[in-house]
Simulated scan of single mutants.
Amino acid sequence: MAIKITKYYFINLSLAVVIFAIGILAIRYYNHYVSAYTDVTLNSSVLNESRKVFIRLPANYNPKRAYPLIIKTDGNFNLDTWDKALTKQAKSEKGDKAILVSIPNLFFTDTRNRDLVPPYARQDVNTQARPEGETLIDRNGEADKFLAFIETELLPYLSAKYKLSNNRVLSGFSAGGSFVLYTLHTKPELFNGYFAFSPAAWYDDMTVVNNVEAFLTTQANKIKSPTYLYLSVGGAEHPLMLKAFDNLESALTANPNNNLVWQSAINEGAEHSDNPTLSVSKALAGFSKFIKK
């Protein structure tokens, strides 16, 4: 028996496919660009675009009290871990409540590498150094602009909106970790806590490591007040990541600084995506101990 297929069948089928695709896109958008906290959109003249931030206030937030500030990259990624760690810390006798601000990447435009890769490394990340006499110049990262957005637009907005203490942390994972290191060696005064989880310091033949080392060797006097740095990596991560981590440790060991307290940890058996989940509580505990000295 022949089955008659009409044009309405194809129209309905096409509509069903479109509706399904829109539904999937909506779910992805919600998971990426909507948080469980307070979502605020800032119109950035520095970046020439609107940027959303997720703001998690402590339980029983008191607007008259000054709170430490934590800014992290990558929006909703690992945000649940941060929420649990901060809740646990606040319940402990020695724990400090904090305001957490997470910056998501744009949704419809891929801005992660643009924002987080330092301006001395290629945006389209590469393991090798740039060839000499390169004729087709790859675009570099624009972490300098993203940092300017944080310094001149986001921080003033937060300072005007909330009462903040002098304790401020910048945290990032992978490319975000390289952004944390870039901030440390270019604007160390902006934060007194830096958390770099699995930092992608291997870009362009270890150029991030080299810039950090050069800073520690020749410009470490720019760290004018006590500053805390926490580095971590998963023991099962890519050999390049482990090599970069080892090189960072060597540079820090070879160039001690009275104003820079640093700790590092290798989470044995952890893959790249596992490491930040295992690192948040340890970094918070280290920073809490640091600011209480």
Rank of each mutant, 00 (worst) to 15 (best):
G75P: 13
F108D: 10
H32I: 02
V40W: 01
L42S: 07
N48R: 14
R28D: 15
Y61T: 10
N60T: 03
G95Y: 04
L25S: 15
L86T: 00
N62R: 04
D39I: 04
L100F: 07
F107K: 06
Q89W: 11
D96G: 03
I71S: 03
S45R: 12
N105K: 03
K88P: 01
A36D: 15
I55F: 04
T87N: 14
P58T: 06
A85H: 04
A90T: 07
S102F: 03
R65S: 14
A59I: 11
N60H: 14
D96A: 12
P119S: 13
R122S: 09
A59T: 15
Y61D: 09
T41R: 06
L42H: 06
Y29N: 08
L69G: 09
I99Q: 05
T87C: 03
L116P: 03
D80P: 03
L69I: 07
I27K: 10
T38E: 15
V34W: 03
G75R: 01
Y33G: 01
R51I: 00
V53D: 07
N105W: 02
Y33N: 15
S50K: 13
K91S: 14
N60K: 14
Y37M: 10
A36H: 14
T81S: 10
R28I: 10
K91Q: 14
D115V: 00
E93Q: 13
T87H: 11
D110N: 13
S44I: 05
K72R: 14
R65G: 04
E93H: 08
L25H: 14
T81P: 00
D115I: 01
N76G: 00
L57I: 05
Q89K: 11
R51Q: 11
G75C: 07
G95A: 06
Y67D: 08
A26V: 11
I70L: 12
T109G: 01
L47S: 04
P58Y: 05
V117D: 01
R51H: 01
T38D: 15
I99A: 10
L57D: 06
D39P: 02
K72S: 14
Y33V: 00
P118V: 02
L100Q: 05
T73W: 02
F77C: 00
P104Q: 11
L79A: 15
K97D: 15
L47M: 13
N62Y: 00
N60R: 08
D39L: 02
N62F: 01
Y120A: 10
Y120Q: 11
A66R: 08
N62Q: 09
P118K: 07
V34S: 10
R56D: 08
E49Y: 00
N78I: 05
N105M: 06
F54D: 10
N43C: 04
L79C: 04
T41K: 03
E49V: 09
D80G: 09
E93M: 12
V53N: 10
A85R: 04
V46Y: 05
A90W: 07
